[in-house]
Nucleic acid binder design. Structure first.
Length: 273
DNA sequence: ATGGTCGACTTTCGA
């Protein structure tokens, strides 16, 4: 069987619920992980999604800022987790049950980190680095429990590889691509042997982006993007994640050209289970 | 060499 997972920083789910339903009608994702929903749990637009068959919805909301939600056709069981260093709504973890078993799905919204890449003067950057460290500790605990089929998705706000940004040299001091945060994310990845599915599929010299700033006017003429949105899997799911090859992984860039779009495009992976 | 744009919700913050 195949199972399609999508991650999308929606930048206000209430403003763009029609884009969400349009996307799901077109793409038929089994599970959609949203970030930056920018609302409380009781403000989340459950109804139009349930009417489309997405009966299972787990939300971690916050007034006005941040917030994540996992929306699914398949049953979800919430995994209680709490580790954001400043208690913002930036992750929701669930167990997804399908016809042949289950896996853990961890939906993250890593802090953007502000402007200045110096923790001495920028507490937001400190928060970002602390958050990544908290992720590493959290998964150290989970692996000890023997749970090994894991999918990590979300807006990581980090473009790790030099071809995950439009200009490696010009972005080395720009938060999202600084060696410090890239190194910390890499440590976390290596610590648990997680597979960055897109980079595993692509050649190293191929660029791939999932985010384009609202401030860059014509993203077709100058493709100044960054790959901030990620889908990682544990080793136990690597062959399932790679089963579809290049066609298994899609950045839906067309959504970035819809009317009043999010600044992020959705990213989808089809698992061959 | 700097400004450029969004969204939520107050007169500003976070991205």
């Amino acid at each position: 069987m195949s199972l399609k997972i999508t991650t999308w920083n929606i930048n206000s789910v209430r403003l763009r619920i029609d884009q969400v339903t349009r996307f799901l009608e077109e793409q038929q994702s089994d599970v959609l992980c949203l970030q930056e929903i920018k609302c409380l749990e009781n403000q989340f637009p459950y109804k139009p999604l349930r009417e489309m068959g997405y009966a299972h919805i787990e939300v971690s909301g916050q007034k006005g800022y941040h917030g994540v939600a996992t929306v699914s056709k398949l049953p979800l069981d919430r995994l209680p987790t709490s580790f954001c260093p400043v208690d913002e709504a930036r992750h929701v973890s669930t167990k997804v049950t399908h016809s042949d078993g289950d896996f853990e799905l961890h939906n993250f919204y890593i802090p953007a980190g502000g402007e200045v890449a110096d923790i001495a003067v920028n507490p937001k950057f400190k928060h970002k680095l602390d958050f990544i460290e908290a992720m590493r500790c959290y998964f150290s605990g989970r692996f000890e429990t023997g749970d090994s089929e894991q999918v990590l998705v979300g807006d990581f706000n980090i473009a790790p590889h030099e071809n995950d940004v439009w200009s490696h040299k010009q972005l080395l001091k720009v938060i999202s691509h600084t060696p410090l945060e890239v190194g910390l994310l890499k440590d976390f990845q290596d610590c648990h042997d997680f597979v960055d599915v897109a980079r595993e599929i692509l050649n190293d010299d191929e660029k791939l982006f999932s985010w384009w700033s609202y401030r860059s006017k014509d993203i077709n003429k100058s493709d100044r993007g960054r790959r901030l949105d990620h889908i990682w899997v544990s080793q136990a799911l690597k062959s399932a994640a790679m089963a579809g090859g290049r066609t298994g992984l899609t950045v839906h860039k067309d959504c970035r050209f819809w009317e009043r779009p999010s600044d992020h495009a959705p990213v989808s992976l089809t698992l061959g289970l």
